[in-house]
Design a protein around this nucleic acid. Sequence first.
DNA 1: TTGACATATAACTGTATGGTTATATGCTCA
DNA 2: TGAGCATATAACCATACAGTTATATGTCAA
Lengths: 97, 97
Amino acid sequence: MKRTLAEAELEQVARHFRLLGEPMRLKILQALCGKPRTVNEIVAAVGATQANVSKHLALLAAAEILTREKDGQCVYYGMKDPLTLKLCELVHNQLAE
Amino acid sequence: MKRTLAEAELEQVARHFRLLGEPMRLKILQALCGKPRTVNEIVAAVGATQANVSKHLALLAAAEILTREKDGQCVYYGMKDPLTLKLCELVHNQLAE
DNA sequence: TTGACATATAACTGTATGGTTATATGCTCA
DNA sequence: TGAGCATATAACCATACAGTTATATGTCAA
């Protein structure tokens, strides 16, 4: 880090990391690696409750980690930023050592 | 991510992120950017309880994010891996956009 | 030894949040 | 308009854990 971050910035960075600190959310992100998917598709992919997935998606979208696009009665969620995936890769590679 | 991670791997990655998802721990990491420091120095730097800091340090060291080296009655903690700082920078830069 | 200091740990509390079930909202089509 | 599907939300419970206070452990110096 180039300079010392203020409390508010630390809080923000921490919140971002905390969002990535949940296996189910990582699973959801994994499911969205390739292309955007509907909630139902994601539910099927990760094997969790619809309500549970929906809550996680809302959090991830609110943090702008995911995009949210409505199409008819379906809602498509997709990766907003490749950085997130990069972060996961980095951590995983390090842990693999 | 190149391939789908197994449950256990997701759990591991998530645990790592979760450790970074706490402002106080980020503050501690910041204090250790430059060089290793003793617990007391860190306590002074972050302005928290000694007991609290000690607990966080133990967690970070157990996860091999920090090194721990005893010298007399002092214990020096230091950044083990530059990757962690890189992660924080990346997230912070993205949020700054 | 004893006293002073540095660090760790135990026990406890409060709070945040992940997961669940049930229900609400909203769209599409017959 | 009403049935059926997709998604979101509310209410609740249980657990994890950050922070606190108090105490234990361990090391040095006189």
